[in-house]
Design a protein around this nucleic acid. Structure first.
Lengths: 213, 213
DNA sequence: TTAGCAACTACCCTAATGTGTAATTGTCTG
DNA sequence: CAGACAATTACACATTAGGGTAGTTGCTAA
């Protein structure tokens, strides 16, 4: 049995090319190809699709919103993004929305077919450039985490603040006076270039200076 | 010119196999192969390596620490993990430590060579299973975000709080009085089961109720 | 050994935050 | 239509947070 595939792509020529390419493989059967994904979730149900190839920039609702809807109603359907966009936001938004793969449009036909097979086997194919971005995302943080030069004591106190402790509670838990805690936090705010606790918490979490949980 | 490759792998047979495999390719030249990476950073400098294939579980310091050291002294050298371990911690620790690729040991020789080429071309090759884990990492949580039943207005105000705004600034930006802001935040704190702003910020970020940046 | 720095303490003062109570308006739903 | 609820405002009160200034101790690197 071939996998039932839906294509959402507003460029007519590209849409037809994809259709021909995939139908040429015994593994896939294109059940439908559409220029927008306004009713994507319903199409998926109607055609009992296994796999969706999704462009991002389309008239009406975009591909990112499209993935969201499909995954909402049919989480088991695999969705692979196929787009020209290589900016961080588009990539991460798509992944968060539930995309199972992210291919740029410079992917060769052979690579595309391989990638679609890979996704059906539980993988998460992505173009080298995208993979690189994704790896960068992890490293980013960590790298500038030590940039702030917080002392051990300061890190400890910041951690307690993030956990929701008041100055007084921090003072109790660290066995120092509340005035000392104030002083430390004042220094911390300077080092983080913020001017209040909430902002410090946001920055601490964003840069993984302290870990959540 | 072939790329100079170093191999760190404690299993002698596998180490030799890798050496033979890569030397067989014109693109690579194995400059050294070692059973541990205790002096990895120095070996990299000594052999002027372009690429490192790194096992994780080795006697002495592990591969994750090895990557860290190499990237510390020679950030431009590419490092690809080649290991049996497929658990989240090992994968994410490696990536954060600076690894440029992550291949499981069930990778075929041909795939391995392709992956090493890919990494030299700026990609970030990873085994399908690893890619899947990485994608999952982005999607996690998200689900319980709507559990708190915040209204649009409340979400908006919480977002401003996370961005470091004081009550007064929030009042200005939302064109309501400061007392209204107080009231909204009071309601927000109740809904999030917290009792101060810093705690609310921590919870909001943790549960992705608002997005960072 | 002197200077720098982390860690700590104390006091004063202002501004910001958090709680309670109470009331008005508009919208949506049973 | 009545009741629920979001959004709004107001005021009073207590507590906390944050800034500035000034000082002590102990360790470490020049």
């Amino acid at each position: 049995m071939a996998y039932e595939v839906l294509i959402f792509e507003d460029n007519a020529r590209l849409r037809q090319s994809l259709e021909i390419l995939l139908n040429d493989e015994n593994l896939f059967h294109v059940a439908g190809a559409f220029p927008d994904c306004d009713k994507a979730d319903r199409q998926v149900e109607k055609h009992n699709a296994d796999l969706v190839v999704m462009d991002i920039d389309m008239p009406g609702i975009g591909g990112v919103e499209g993935v969201k809807r499909i995954k909402n109603t049919n989480p088991e359907v695999k969705v692979v993004m196929h787009t020209m966009f290589d900016d961080d936001n588009r990539i991460f938004d798509s992944i968060c929305a539930g995309a199972d793969g992210y291919l740029l449009k410079n992917t060769s036909p052979l690579q595309l077919v391989n990638a679609l097979q890979e996704v059906m086997n539980g993988g998460a194919p992505m173009s080298p450039f995208v993979a690189h971005k994704v790896f960068q995302h992890f490293r980013q943080r960590k790298s500038d985490a030590e940039q702030f030069n917080l002392t051990n004591r300061e890190t400890e106190i910041l951690d307690l603040l993030v956990k929701g402790n008041s100055y007084k509670m921090i003072a109790d838990k660290t066995n120092v006076s509340i005035d000392t805690v104030k002083k430390h936090l004042q220094n911390i705010y300077h080092k983080l270039h913020v001017n209040c606790g909430t902002e410090a918490v946001a920055k601490a979490l964003k840069h993984r200076i302290v870990n959540p949980d």
